[in-house]
Design a binder for these strands. Structure first.
Lengths: 334, 334
DNA sequence: ACCCGATGGTTGATCGGTAAAACCCATCCG
DNA sequence: CGGATGGGTTTTACCGATCAACCATCGGGT
């Protein structure tokens, strides 16, 4: 910076103005400075800037071990979109690993107190998420991808995808294809996301005048769960012909159960998953699934973060987006 | 830092010593300083440190758009392992998006010149990779995950997985299961990785005394490729019974071709993929595949980076690791 | 008595930007 | 003609850690 200034014969500050508030300089000086900047290939030092402004211009993002969250590489796609949005806003994405929520809290504390990042994006939230409690207590800026179930909603910054609207779409789609007995394969345990998605199914079923009686079953998020639950339902006297599933993983299990019984997915039965993960592409027949608008989610997440950083005591904002149904052979054969 | 110093009644520098070179202080002073650090919850400011040391202690990592590289989320797992290794070495992982190699070069230049990171990890390398040319020219420190095919190998820092050794294992495994006509489904185009993997297959076939004649076929990395190539081979008079595939994607296609012909994978035919991606778990029957030792790769990558940063003109190091065969139902039925 | 090195700690400069205020000089106005 | 105005630029003072040099004390060897 000093070199550029010396070369043009102006002060350091003038160089700074040229790059950050060009309108404060006369057109001629501006041009001369920019020319020198270009010739010398000058680029401002990020560390110095962070130090002075007390803001590293970076958002923290937690990476999950692959053993978990292989549930679809959704977070991997989200991370990409987030980094695009961050880049656009001149922010860096700092990735830190954490196997458990406790560890994540640990690391968050560490990198926040050292001024390595100035805010966080929280994903894979659970009911009464301890991370959110922690961040709220400390007043650390964050935006959560996923509603903070169990916390005051209107008081927290979040972006989420409307799971209920998604499962409604799924039911509508199956109903249109002639299905009337549509089951719901969900997660067990207390879980805001699961409840949300189930409620959408229930509402849509009611509005079509279909019975939901004995058609909602639950289990852990495993392929085997989907296979067993769907299998049990299919072995009933009046078996369902449609399956709305809380995740692709469970849906893939359901597809397997169908095949084992000689039922052609798309023809005899319809199966819909959730997340449109890689598995949904790979499986045969291709799985109809609800895709989360990750690019939009990322853009809003970044926008909310910037808003929040600009005005620390602004009113919390929330964004709820609709998933879109990606139709494949599991509901509509080729 | 000044506050801690004031509280203990020592100078700033003493606090620094307490945290960074504890042996330079007397045990009593050390204890008193550390106590104050703890009580005040002091944490050093990373930006200030980066500024002074001229090293941000961060490694840059490029994120691929999800549309590409869905080839298995291998990079996502690698990123996790890399962040673990980096964290252990007190380094941050800075993620930047780039859709093309040209864009990546652009971004690398940007964040390196602004001192945002001090080195890079390059993945998904190709033959004559332009990024490597660029980085070598500029003398920017980097380690490549994947051999820099087309560049002087011994002159570049890289960590890689021995593809040839992998496909050899695959052939051995299939041979053990009684297969003698084992085909190779590869990638088309000039590609170091592909050639490497194919050479392993060829070598193993020869050592078993099996013919390779007309058994190696190639195409783009798509499920449809595997399906068509395997289909064509299966429809021959003397069809192969084993398939060693350059990727899980192609292997999944091959599995599909088998099923369409009523052949039971694991019994009638054996199929082996490469990468042990999520697809290999999800597919039915489960796909036997070659898993890359990503944790090891990440650890070595980080080690090489640190070596290189410590001594910029040290001799380049290389690490070649063996993949391990993960056996599933596509070669050994339950 | 003198010098020497080791031990334990201090001082001041510095990294490269940015914020805030001061400054200069023309123009405008009563 | 003096003072207010304001655009354009400079000055000064940081941000918070680290580096290099320096100082004080003390024990030991000659």
């Amino acid at each position: 910076m000093a070199m550029v200034a010396a070369r043009v014969g102006v002060s350091k500050q003038t160089v700074h103005y040229a790059l950050n508030s060009p309108d404060r300089l006369s057109p001629t000086t501006l041009r001369r400075v920019l020319k020198a900047v270009d010739e010398l290939g000058y680029r401002p030092n990020q560390a110095a800037r962070s130090l002075r402004t007390q803001s590293p211009q970076a958002v923290g993002f937690r990476l999950l071990p692959t053993t978990q969250g292989q549930s679809g590489g959704v977070w991997a796609s989200f991370l990409y979109e987030l980094s695009v949005a961050a880049h656009r806003a001149d922010h860096a994405v700092y990735c830190h690993p954490a196997a458990t929520d406790e560890e994540e809290i640990q690391v968050i504390q560490e990198i926040f107190s050292t001024n390595t990042v100035d805010c966080f994006v929280i994903t894979a939230t659970q009911d009464h998420d301890p991370r959110i409690t922690f961040l709220r207590e400390r007043g650390i800026p964050f935006v959560s991808f996923g509603r903070p179930w169990g916390h005051p909603m209107s008081d927290t910054w979040w972006v989420d995808v409307d799971g209920a609207a998604g499962t409604e779409q799924a039911v509508d789609h199956l109903a249109e294809r002639g299905h009337r007995r549509i089951a719901y394969l969900g997660w067990d345990g207390r879980n805001g996301f699961g409840d949300d998605r189930e409620s959408g199914w229930r509402r849509a079923m009611r509005s079509h005048g279909f019975s939901t009686r004995d058609l909602a079953v639950r289990g852990p998020d495993e392929i085997s769960t989907g296979r067993e639950l769907a299998g049990r339902l299919l072995d009933r006297k009046t078996a369902p012909t449609g399956f709305v599933c809380v995740s692709d993983t469970i849906a893939i299990g359901a597809l397997r159960a169908c095949r084992e019984r000689g039922l052609a997915a798309g023809h005899d039965v319809g199966v819909v998953g959730f997340d449109d993960s890689v598995g949904a592409h790979f499986v045969d027949p291709g799985l109809t699934s609800l895709a989360q608008p990750l690019e939009l989610v990322a853009r809003h997440t970044m926008r909310l973060l910037l808003d929040r950083l600009k005005d620390p005591d602004a009113k919390a904002e929330q964004v709820l987006l609709r998933p879109t149904l990606v139709v494949r052979e599991s509901t509509v054969p080729l």
